[in-house]
């Protein structure tokens, strides 16, 4: 699929899709969305990239080993649950604090968010490795 149109389109679409994907992931706790949907949108961007430039280029563009990405995501999800254990609560008990972001006000940050980021990483890694494996065929 060596289409110039696709390649050009991808160049603009990929960053856009990645931003959308991150936003959807982060706002998921309050609006429709979440790590899962976010990651799928992000993966769509990279999949497009893969089709346009070939899987090898995409692996380079991803900058991170997919197995590590998945493992790291899973580790993050588990770790988010272990925070509570350190405090003596049950596994996966949400721990919350607020972070003051200049110009944005105070944002509530908690381990469920970390969990969702873990989900994001895993899903991105999973979808990408499946798509790339198929593209490499």
């Amino acid at each position: 699929m060596n289409s110039t149109i696709l390649q050009t389109a991808t160049r603009y679409l990929l960053p856009l899709l990645l931003v959308v994907s991150l936003v959807i992931m982060l706002q998921g706790h309050n609006k429709p969305g979440g790590g899962f949907i976010g990651a799928l949108i992000g993966a769509a961007g990279f999949a497009l990239h893969g089709m346009a430039f070939g899987p090898k280029a995409t692996r380079t563009a991803l900058r991170v080993d997919l197995v590590w990405l998945m493992a790291a995501g899973l580790a993050m999800a588990i770790a988010s649950g272990l925070f509570a254990v350190v405090e003596g609560s049950a596994f996966l008990t949400g721990q919350w604090g607020s972070v003051h972001v200049p110009g944005f006000g105070s944002i509530k940050v908690g381990t469920p968010l970390l969990f969702d980021i873990g989900v994001y990483c895993v899903v991105l890694g999973v979808v990408m490795s499946i798509v790339l494996a198929l593209l490499e065929e």
């Binding site: 706790h29 429709p32 996966l92 949400g94």
Partner: peptide
């Protein structure tokens, strides 16, 4: 308690996070 307005997402990442894991 769970600081989220999207109940479905809260279920997924908090109430029933083990399922999501």
């Amino acid at each position: 308690e769970a600081h989220g307005r999207n109940i479905v997402n809260v279920i997924l990442v908090d109430f029933r996070a083990l399922d999501t894991l």
